[in-house]
Design a protein around this nucleic acid. Structure first.
Length: 616
DNA sequence: CATAACCCTG
DNA sequence: CAGGGTTATG
């Protein structure tokens, strides 16, 4: 781990610098290919696993800088280590059921397989590939472009798989076609289990949706001045729709293909297929469906934003803020506001409802879930990153995120924890604790889906994205003018921190401050020129010119509700400048330092919401 | 010598 | 906002 982290740092320092444009083209082709094929190329279980693990581990140490796999900072290494074994294994396994086939493939070296069996095996192989979301499938009407890419990716993948598998050939020789069938069935069972769990979850969601729905909607309207806030109520439905469709598609595909290969399925197995889910989800989301039907891309980009706006505006609702905060209050007094209040945080309590995973078989099920999440309902996901993302993305913000390597973690609250409040008070239990694998996904739409999925948080790319992260940093400035590097680390969890990144962020805030103080000085001097004699006559309100200047700078889009606290701090700053200048203290070359000292004590805590959302 | 804050400039 | 120079700390 140390090695890989170090390696990572070197990468940053030497090649890329620390800042990455939001432009998505930073991913090198080889990078993509690796990302795509590695999980597919490595799969094992049973006795060979330890050896494989070693191989994987070594490979990973080298490749991690490319994968940016998991947030393996030194800080969380302890936690991760606890899970590292299962995590690694499951990562591999979860992502590549198709490698099952590898098992059978080598069998024929020793026992030539009859033709019909071979054909059957080929079919099975195909099924699994489809299940894994291989580029093969075109059921969703892929464009020519992605078809081409699909082929290329597939071929590269096969080519490489062959090579990679070669050294370990003997290890797979035990299993045969029967084994495959067995494994297939096992997988089916797991899918069914998962499906049932999802169904239950969806039902719960629906049952409590409507009251919650309206209530939240109203509250939101009252508290937010974001123009497109209306979209928020549809988030759930969009999410549910997508998730259920993912499940449906995958399960359906499996059933269809498996049955077409002649494997016999029990009636129950067939019955567990998707109809109920699809009926529930699609039926419910009908009204939203009409509007969101078409541009999935835009939808994916737009929805998460509105949700987050909603969340933040809610958390900053006047009731929460105005009374609790006073300028003289020290940080600790402010802290409870943003960090310890669990109840106000989520507009949709259902978001915290945990999946009831069957923990007796956690790995298997979660593997499949992640499979679904990874490859999603659109089977061509695997190749999407190969094409220029901008072509499909119309929303400007969408360019920020989609096409980077992201490690995805489900924010699953373990069922036995029970109470949501408890879980959220603890800051949400991430999947790491469940030893679920870190999954790399590389699809914008999936990411959009994940953004909307309350059970997931994303670790995106681990690098600074100028556009999105800068925006976030600016918004954070409304709360803290002097963030410590710890705060920065905390609130940019999707960034892999190194020296360069840290100083970059610090530099940003330094620049922010610079602008801030320049404005303050300017307006203070103007007030003096204007003949204002009493500081009390200088106030900073939302419609004052000073605020407008600041808001324009830090919140250009004006889509963020600036906390009142910031107005107060601004006013204090303005007063400080005014009095200092009035007292002719500005003759001292370092007269501002005294002011800085005052202002830096007025930092408040950044709301929790900034932690989860990778951008606002 | 290194780091980071500060200051100034483009 | 980034870059480069300067200063303060250690």
């Amino acid at each position: 781990k140390n090695i890989s982290v170090h390696h990572l740092n070197c990468m940053h320092n030497s090649s890329e610098g620390c800042l990455e444009d939001d432009k998505p083209d930073v991913m090198l082709p080889c990078f993509r290919r690796n990302m795509y094929e590695e999980p597919l190329a490595l799969y094992s279980n049973g006795s060979i696993i330890s050896q494989l693990r070693k191989t994987i581990h070594n490979k990973r140490a080298l490749d991690e800088s490319l994968f940016y796999l998991s947030s393996s900072t030194a800080a969380d290494s302890g936690q991760e280590d606890q899970c590292s074994v299962s995590s690694k294994d499951s990562t591999v396994e979860a992502q590549s059921p198709s490698a099952h086939v590898a098992t059978g493939a080598s069998a024929e070296a020793e026992h030539p397989v009859p033709d019909h069996l071979q054909a059957k095996r080929a079919r099975v192989e195909n099924i699994i590939r489809v299940m894994a979301g291989s580029p093969n499938s075109r059921q969703h009407g892929d464009s020519e472009r992605s078809d081409t890419d699909a082929r290329e990716a597939r071929e590269a993948y096969r080519e490489n798989k062959r090579k990679q598998r070669l050294p370990q050939h003997q290890e797979h020789s035990a299993a045969g076609p029967d084994e495959e069938c067995h494994k297939l069935k096992e997988q089916l069972h797991s899918m069914q289990r998962l499906l049932r769990q999802l169904q239950e979850k969806f039902l719960q969601v629906y049952n409590q949706e409507d009251p919650e729905h309206n209530e939240c909607g109203d509250r939101m309207k009252a508290q937010s001045n974001v123009s497109h806030q209306r979209e928020s109520p549809n988030l759930q439905e969009a999410l549910k729709k997508e998730l259920s469709r993912a499940v449906n598609d995958c399960v359906d595909r499996v059933f269809k293909k498996v049955s077409s290969t002649g494997l016999d399925l029990s009636p129950q197995q067939r019955m567990c297929s998707s109809p109920e889910v699809s009926a529930g989800a699609d039926g419910k989301s009908q009204r939203a469906g009409s509007t969101q039907e078409q541009p999935q891309d835009q939808e994916a980009a737009a929805k998460p934003r509105s949700l987050e706006y909603y969340e933040s505006s809610k958390a900053h609702s006047p009731q929460d803020q105005t009374e609790a905060l006073s300028l003289v209050v020290r940080k600790p007094a402010v802290a409870p506001l943003s960090s310890v209040t669990p109840t106000v945080k989520r507009p949709y309590p259902v978001h915290q409802t945990p999946f009831q995973f069957n923990y007796s078989t956690p790995l298997h099920d979660s593997q499949i879930l992640e499979h679904l999440l990874k490859y999603g309902p659109h089977s061509n996901f695997g190749v999407l990153p190969c094409m220029p993302p901008s072509m499909d993305r119309t929303s400007p913000d969408s360019v920020d995120l989609p096409w980077d390597t992201i490690a995805m973690r489900s924010k699953v609250t373990p069922g036995h924890l029970g109470h949501h409040a408890r879980a959220s008070a603890l800051g949400a239990v991430t999947v790491d604790n469940l030893c679920l694998p870190h999954v790399k996904i590389e699809c914008g739409e999936l990411q959009g889906m994940a953004e909307r999925n309350p059970y997931m948080s994303l670790n995106i790319s681990f690098r600074l994205k100028k556009k999105s992260h800068l925006k976030k940093a600016k918004l954070m400035f409304f709360y803290t003018r002097y963030p410590s590097s710890n705060v920065l680390k905390t609130f940019f969890p999707d960034v892999k921190f190194n020296r360069c990144i840290t100083s970059q962020l610090i530099k940003w805030f330094s620049n922010f401050r610079e602008f801030y103080y320049i404005q303050m000085e300017k307006f203070a001097r103007q007030a003096i020129v204007d003949g204002i004699s009493d500081v009390k006559d200088m106030t900073v309100s939302r419609d004052s010119e000073l605020f407008r200047a600041l808001n324009m700078h830090y919140n250009k889009a004006n889509d963020f509700h600036v906390p009142d606290r910031f107005l107060e701090v601004s006013e204090v700053t303005l007063h400080e400048f005014y009095t200092a200048i009035s007292a002719a203290k500005d003759s001292d070359p370092s007269w501002k330092k005294a002011i800085y000292k005052v202002i830096c004590k007025l930092d408040s805590d950044v709301p929790e919401e900034f932690k989860t959302s990778s951008y606002l």
